[in-house]
Design a protein around this nucleic acid. Structure first.
Lengths: 388, 388
DNA sequence: TTAATTTAATTAATCATGTTATAATATATT
DNA sequence: AATATATTATAACATGATTAATTAAATTAA
C-alpha cells in the first residue's frame, strides 16, 4: 500500500489542481481554492510549479466580481505530445496528439495476414518512425507512446499475450518499442484504452465511474473507476463479450454457449439475419443489414431491434454487477444506433431492479473512429495528470 | 476528492501499521518498518499513539535474531466492542463482539409477519437494549452499532428502502437507533455486510479483491476491493441474483426471465426438483433435496450438480466482469457444497477465458451462520482500522 | 474624486509530520 | 571480554500545508 509521505501529499494536491484546471478552464487560482477546499497559498505555490513545468499557462484577466480581476489559468496543450497507436486486427493506425487530444499527425498501414511477431513489430516501428520524422519540432516534447492492442495484453510487461485475429502470441511490444525509441511505452487492451479515452476526452466531467463497450468484430469493454482503469485480479475485468446470457444458445468461438458475442457482434447479426430471412447459402454482412434497415425494410429493422434488446440484457447484467454511472457504446455495430440504442435503453429501463440505477446514462461515443487512438494517447496522459 | 493534508499522510500510515499488526501479530516495530517501508521513527511514534489509545498493546519480548530482543505488538482485542445486528427476513439476531470478532453476547427474536415499520424498529431496539443490559462492563468501550439488513438499503441515510420479505419500505433504521442509543450506526445490505465480514474475519490475508456470494432464499453478493465495499453509482453493485443467464428462461419475481435466482435459490432448486422428479402436487423443500442426495439418490444428486453448473455459469460471468481475486460462497444452499462446489469449480475452469483467471479461488465461507453478523460488526471496524 | 469595500494573489511565520543521523540498549558470536 | 548486530529511542532537519498579514487591483459608496 502507498505510504503517507510528503510527496504523496503534494502529488495528490497537484493532481487535484491540474484536473480542476483541465475540466474547468479558464479558471482562477482563487476559484480553484474555493472548489477544491485547498488554501490559496497551496494553490498558488503548486500553480507556480505547473507554470514552470509549462503544463499550465496564464491568459488574460477574467471578469471582476467586485474586486481585483482574476488571472485565468489554462492547460498548455502544446506543452507535450503523445504518440498513440491503434493496433487492430487489420490495420495499424498511428497518431501524434497534443494534451487536448488534437491530432497533429496521422499515418496507417494495412496488415498482411499471415504475419510474424517480427513483422508486426517492424510495422509498428515503421509507422512510429514516420510520425516522428514528420514532427521534428515536437521531438523534445514527446511524453511517450501509448499502444492500444486488440486481444489479451499483460500490462506489467506490455506484452500481447494473445492476438487472435493475427494468430500471434507473446509479442513483447513494450520492450521492443522502448529499445527502439527510448521513450516510455504503455500497452493496453484496445477496448480498455477506448474506455480510458472516452473518460478522458469524452466530456463526461468527473463521472466517478464509466464503462465503455465496443461492439464490432467482437464485444469488449473497459471499466473506469475514479479516472483509472479497473483491471481486476488477472486483467480480464470488463470481458463482457463472453458473458453467458443464454445457457442453451449457439456455440461461441470460445467453446461456451450463448455468449453475448454470439448475438451482438457484426458477424453474429449477419448470421442471425441469414438464418431468419435468407436462404442458407445467401451471404449478407452486418453493414448490409443496417443499410436495408435504413431503407425502411421492417424485417431488417426487427433484427436490429432484437439485437438492441439482447445488448440491453447484457448491459443490465453489467449494471447489476458493476453499477457504473455511465455506459458509453462504440464500435461498428453502433452505426445502427438509430435502431439499436432505443431498444437498449428500453430493455434496461424494464429490467434493472433499482429505480435509481434505471437512470444509468447510456450514450454512443462522440469520439467516433478515433476513440481507441485517443485512448492510446490517454494511457500516457493519465500518468501526467494523475500520478498518484 | 480527498485533499493531501498532514492528517491524510498520518492516517494513511496509521492505517498501514494497524492493519499490519492485525494481519501479522505478534510483530515487532522493526519488522513493521521493514515490511511497510516506513521508517523506524515513524513506526515508533505511531505505535506510541496506538498504545495510548489502547488499540495496541505490547506483550513479552520475542526471540532475538542476533541483537536486542524485539518487543512484540498485538491488537488489544478488548479495547473496543461493537454491536452487530442481522435483520433477516424472519429473525433479528444481535451480538456484541470484540475487535477480533469474538462474540461475547447474543440474543435473537422471531419476527411475526405482517409487521409495521414501528414494530420492526421496536424489535431492533429491544434486542439491542437486551445486549447492552447484560454487558454493562463494556459500555464505555462500544464503538457503535452495525446493521446488516436484507433488501435494498440507502447507505448514506441508513434507510431500508425495500425489505421485500417483510413487505416494508423506507425504514429509517440509522436515524431511529442513533436517537435511541446515542451511538454511531451503520446500515448495509446483508450480502454486502457478509462480504465485508468475510474479507475482515475470513483469514484471506490481504487479498486485493473478493466477492462473497450468498445463496439461500435469494442470491446476493458483495464486492470488496482493497478492503472496502464497492457500492457502484447507485448502490446495486454485486446484484448477481437477477443476472440473466437464460433469455428464454422461467419468469422471475422481478419480472425478467432466466435470472440466476430462478435456478439457484433454495426455492428454485425445490421447484426444479418437483418439475423433474415428482408429481406436480408433490411438495419438497431445498433441504429435503439435499438430504435425499446425501442418502445417495442419484436423481437428486444430479439436480444439485446441475445447480452447481448453473451457479458456475453465473460466477463465470462475474469473473469476466469484476475479476476478483477470490470468491467466497455462503448461504443455505451451500450446505450442499459436497455436490455443488465441485461442479461450480469445474464449470469455471471450463468457461473462463483467461488461463490466469481460471485460478480464481472459490471457497465456502468458514464463518458459517455468523458470517452476516460478523459482517455487521465489521461495518464499524473498517472505520476504526481504515479511516482513510 | 476620494474613501471604503471587496476580491485576488503573495509573503512570512508557524505547525504537523516524515526522514536522516546518531545514540542507547540488549543480545549473540568470536 | 570484545565485537558485531538487531531493536528502539532521540534529536536535528526537511517538506509542505496552514494561518495571518500584506499587497494589488478593482468596484461601490460618499
Amino acid at each position: 500500500m502507498q505510504r503517507g509521505t510528503f510527496q504523496l501529499m503534494k502529488s495528490v494536491n497537484k493532481s487535484i489542481i491540474l484536473n480542476k484546471i483541465r475540466t474547468s478552464e479558464p479558471i482562477s487560482r482563487a476559484q480553484i481554492a474555493k472548489d477544491t477546499k485547498l488554501t490559496p497559498p497551496t494553490v498558488s505555490s503548486i500553480v507556480k510549479e505547473l507554470i514552470e513545468q509549462e503544463l499550465v499557462r496564464e491568459s488574460d484577466l477574467g471578469e471582476s466580481k467586485g474586486g481585483r480581476k482574476p488571472t485565468m489559468l489554462h492547460i498548455n496543450n502544446n506543452a507535450f505530445y503523445v504518440v498513440g497507436v491503434d493496433a487492430g486486427p487489420e490495420t495499424v493506425e498511428c497518431i501524434l496528439a497534443d494534451l487536448s487530444g488534437k491530432i497533429v499527425e496521422r499515418v496507417s498501414s494495412k496488415l498482411n495476414i499471415p504475419i510474424t511477431n517480427g513483422q508486426f513489430i517492424s510495422i509498428l516501428k515503421e509507422n512510429i518512425h514516420k510520425i516522428l520524422h514528420t514532427s521534428k519540432p515536437y521531438h523534445d516534447k514527446i511524453l511517450g507512446i501509448g499502444v492500444a492492442m486488440h486481444g489479451v495484453v499483460d500490462i506489467e510487461t506490455g506484452t500481447s499475450l494473445v492476438a487472435p485475429n493475427l494468430d500471434l502470441r507473446n509479442i513483447p511490444i513494450k520492450q521492443k518499442l522502448e529499445e527502439e525509441f527510448n521513450l516510455v511505452v504503455n500497452v493496453e487492451n484496445d477496448a480498455r484504452a477506448m474506455a480510458l479515452g472516452e473518460s478522458w476526452f469524452g466530456g463526461h466531467g468527473d463521472a466517478d465511474s464509466m464503462v465503455a463497450v465496443n461492439i464490432g468484430r467482437g464485444v469488449g469493454s473497459g471499466v473506469v473507476i475514479n479516472g483509472k482503469l479497473y483491471h481486476g485480479a488477472q486483467d480480464i475485468a470488463g470481458e463482457i463479450g463472453h458473458m453467458t446470457i443464454d445457457i442453451n444458445g449457439e456455440i461461441c468461438e470460445c467453446g461456451s454457449r450463448g455468449c453475448l458475442q454470439t448475438f451482438a457482434s457484426g458477424v453474429a447479426i449477419a448470421e442471425r439475419t441469414r438464418k431468419k430471412l435468407e436462404g442458407k447459402s445467401e451471404t449478407i454482412t452486418g453493414e448490409e443489414v443496417y443499410k436495408l434497415a435504413e431503407s425502411g425494410n421492417t424485417a431488417y429493422i426487427e433484427i436490429l431491434e432484437e439485437t438492441g434488446m439482447i445488448i440491453g440484457i447484457g448491459l443490465t447484467n453489467l449494471i447489476h454487477l458493476i453499477n457504473p454511472r455511465k455506459i458509453v457504446l462504440g464500435g461498428g455495430v453502433m452505426k445502427s444506433k438509430k435502431f439499436i440504442l432505443p431498444k437498449i435503453k428500453q430493455t434496461i429501463e424494464q429490467r434493472v431492479l433499482s429505480p435509481a440505477a434505471k437512470e444509468t446514462e447510456v450514450t454512443v461515443t462522440k469520439l467516433g473512429e478515433d476513440a481507441t487512438l485517443l485512448g492510446a494517447v490517454s494511457l500516457l496522459l493519465v500518468e501526467l495528470f494523475d500520478p498518484v
